[in-house]
Simulated assay, not measured.
Amino acid sequence: MLVMLCAFMFSVHILVIDHFSPKVDCVKMSCIQFFVCAVISTVFMFALETPDFASLWSAKTAILYSGILSSGVGYTLQIIGQQGNDPTVSSLILSLESVFSMISGWIVLHEKFSPKEAIGSLLIFAAIILSQLPKEIFQKICGKGRRNLNV
């Protein structure tokens, strides 16, 4: 249920970016988004956790990295990259995040992954490639068994 809610919220996020990015400065939009996220996260931190300054200070590097690079830079680049693109194509590209993170972990961190993980990544990649093929090519690959194929 949590994964479905997350997927729904990311699709709403992509549509909101598609709506507002041509109308506003993308970097300002990202800064506002970053600030709102920080405020909401802080409220939930105090509502659901019992933080103490020593714990926060000991985790400062991880907090700053995830806050600035993962959220700030990542979402700013997403907004800039998505500007002017079709939201459907953008969502397909963004769904490759797990594939790219697995490949990056393999290259940079020398992580090992199971055959199950490799097959899952290949299936995601293949599904995205197939979904972007023109109708004629898709029918040649998959056959013409379906007459009313709306791709």
Rank of each mutant, 00 (worst) to 15 (best):
5 L>E: 02
7 A>C: 10
8 F>C: 12
9 M>P: 01
11 S>V: 14
11 S>K: 04
13 H>Q: 12
15 L>E: 11
20 F>M: 09
21 S>M: 04
23 K>R: 15
24 V>F: 13
24 V>A: 00
25 D>L: 07
28 K>D: 13
29 M>Y: 11
31 C>G: 12
32 I>K: 10
35 F>N: 05
36 V>R: 06
38 A>K: 02
38 A>N: 06
38 A>C: 08
41 S>V: 11
43 V>H: 00
44 F>T: 07
44 F>S: 00
44 F>N: 03
45 M>P: 01
45 M>V: 10
46 F>R: 03
46 F>K: 01
47 A>N: 00
48 L>F: 12
49 E>F: 15
51 P>A: 09
51 P>C: 06
52 D>T: 08
57 W>Q: 06
60 K>R: 15
60 K>W: 13
62 A>H: 06
62 A>M: 11
63 I>S: 03
68 I>V: 15
69 L>V: 15
70 S>W: 02
70 S>E: 03
71 S>M: 10
71 S>I: 02
71 S>P: 00
77 L>R: 00
78 Q>A: 03
78 Q>G: 01
80 I>M: 05
81 G>A: 01
83 Q>V: 00
84 G>H: 10
85 N>P: 02
85 N>S: 12
88 T>A: 02
90 S>G: 15
92 L>C: 11
92 L>V: 08
93 I>E: 01
94 L>G: 05
94 L>M: 14
97 E>N: 10
98 S>P: 13
99 V>H: 07
99 V>M: 08
101 S>P: 05
102 M>C: 11
106 W>Q: 07
108 V>L: 15
108 V>D: 13
110 H>D: 14
115 P>W: 13
118 A>V: 15
118 A>S: 07
119 I>K: 07
123 L>D: 09
123 L>I: 15
125 F>S: 09
125 F>Q: 04
126 A>V: 15
129 I>G: 00
130 L>T: 05
130 L>F: 11
131 S>N: 07
133 L>Y: 08
134 P>N: 13
134 P>G: 08
136 E>F: 05
136 E>N: 10
137 I>E: 11
138 F>S: 01
139 Q>C: 10
139 Q>V: 05
142 C>E: 09
144 K>I: 03
145 G>T: 02
145 G>I: 01
146 R>K: 11
148 N>L: 12
149 L>M: 12
150 N>R: 06
